[in-house]
Design a protein around this nucleic acid. Structure first.
Lengths: 305, 305
DNA sequence: TTTAAATGTTATAAAAATAGGACAACTGTT
DNA sequence: AACAGTTGTCCTATTTTTATAACATTTAAA
């Protein structure tokens, strides 16, 4: 009972803490008892895989421009504090992934990345207007749809009484058959009863809420970053340990009741969050003000939950 | 339908572990070299570490409530399809991380997690008003201050002519002597000449710009996620490969000229970005509107560049 | 042609992770 | 007192990952 309850682990992952480490050395040793920090390691994996991830991220993010030559294996080995074999594995993985081209005598150069993996940019201002465009351009895979007792943080943020249940759904959204977001939503049961599984796999949750008579009023969003764990990695088709944008949004109705709790994970190579700011205020108290939505939409903006 | 079901099983292999045992194997080899996607699923990481991650995340996200007793090592080993030694490592890591308490004869219980009170929340709306508070509460370490030829992306976003130089600075901002952000700024030379190294190590760049007569007008921000590299990892006191919030901001003056290019990396365990939204617009075209700055500030808000 | 630098290849050894088992010590319950 | 369930400790064997070294091959430049 208690056991089984424990076993009922829902795998949606959001990271909070990460290991603090003195060295930039890539190390597998977890036995560093000289660590005064309590936070345990965040990065898993073999050294070669970690190096692969680093370089891959550098390439995909544009820090390593296409055409640029990487340092030699020996140099990289010294730089990362590992042997050449280890670096080599990472490089070969990059090669197989099509991120770099290697030639004996020449070196390793970063390849031009096919831009068709277009990065979607979601402006916080223009969240909703593109809903139609979005639902046409993207498909949803519903991984879970069930009613459960809410995890404590969710219960708290939604302001639910102890014992109230929520409807949880896990969806993966795809554009061009490529997954880019992993969405975990919790909705109070009394609201969620207005729609069913089929609705959710086709209609944005947002529309369902309004259809259910919910008077959406405001929301609080927090943006962070995390690493892909096994389940998420599989769903988003990335490797474990890849960086992900983590967004938590709690939506409230006009009476201040929480009506939706969203935990979203985004692939940064396919999705970004954009915020445009205006400088306003008088001399004494100037500040940034987020831009109001504009009539023209960006090419691939999106709204999804 | 069938494939959806399979995906559910794969994804929740822990959830249904006690029922679907053949999918519970944690395996190191995903040798699918038939991957045409650039993101090979070669799962990195030791099994023990992956299990550690699973449990840690379950605890931190509240799915495993404090006080709850975990299944025994043997049971976990069977359920994860690994040996007891492997489970043990994960459990010991959890123990060292202070997430659980273990006692012979009793078992392993989840500990109450001291909520990291040091997480700063930066509201995009309230960026500037807290500058004073911020500069008192945080210190800056200036790592670099030089004039260079701008990297191509920077040159482009600032709208500089080919050959124009920029002043680059790298700063690390700390709160309570703990680093939380790594800031790389590029400012056109003709603006940067109005201040010097000493200024920058004490005064927010923002204030320096305005002091230099720049009429700041608007900015474009993009938020993403990335992995910590050597330099950054060392500066932020995290391990290489840790996830970081990546923010790029380009600031423009009233004439639309780029006056500052900021690349910021934040430790997600110490810094989050918060955006509060209001639902506005008429029936036909409703949308989210970022909240205007509020007179009351949150406790640990910050502004820094 | 020579030289330097890079990747490709091969081999061996060391280190780490994992599996599987056995047994002791501790705790609460029957 | 016996027992079932738990963690703690020890052991050996196997597999995987990493380190180290040596040498070959390719390429561009001096």
């Amino acid at each position: 009972m208690a056991h089984k309850a424990v076993l009922c682990i829902i795998h949606f992952y959001v990271y909070f803490m990460h290991r603090v480490k003195r060295f930039t050395m890539i190390s597998n040793k977890t036995k560093d008892s000289t660590m005064n920090d309590t936070h345990a390691n965040s990065v898993g994996g073999t050294k070669s895989h970690r190096i692969y991830l680093l370089l891959k991220d550098a390439i995909l993010s544009g820090r390593l421009a296409p055409g640029r030559k990487l340092p030699g294996e020996l140099k990289l080995a010294e730089q990362y504090g590992v042997s050449r074999v280890t670096v080599r594995r990472a490089m070969q993985a990059l090669d197989e992934a099509g991120l770099v081209a290697r030639k004996p005598g020449l070196g390793t150069v970063v390849l031009e990345q096919p831009l068709d993996a277009t990065v979607m940019t979601a402006s916080v201002a223009n969240l909703l207007p593109n809903m139609v465009k979005m639902s046409k351009a993207s498909r949803v895979r519903l991984l879970e749809f069930c009613y459960v007792k809410p995890p404590e943080p969710v219960r708290e943020s939604l302001g639910l009484r102890d014992g109230e249940r929520v409807q949880r759904s896990i969806r993966v959204r795809m554009a061009d058959d490529k997954p880019f977001s992993y969405l975990v939503t919790h909705v109070p049961e009394y609201i969620a009863l207005h729609y069913n599984e089929a609705d959710l796999s086709q209609t944005p949750l947002f529309a369902l809420l309004e259809r259910s008579g919910v008077k959406v009023d405001h929301a609080a969003q927090t943006i962070s970053a995390t690493l892909a764990t096994h389940e998420v990695a599989e769903a988003l088709d990335v490797s474990v340990g890849s960086p992900l944008i983590a967004l938590t949004r709690v939506v409230y109705d006009e009476e201040g009741r929480g009506v939706e709790h969203l935990d979203a994970l985004y692939r940064p190579d396919r999705y970004r969050i954009q915020i445009d700011l205006n400088r306003t205020g008088d001399e004494a108290a100037r500040y940034w003000e987020p831009m109001a939505p504009e009539p023209h939409h960006r090419e691939r903006e999106s709204q999804e939950a």
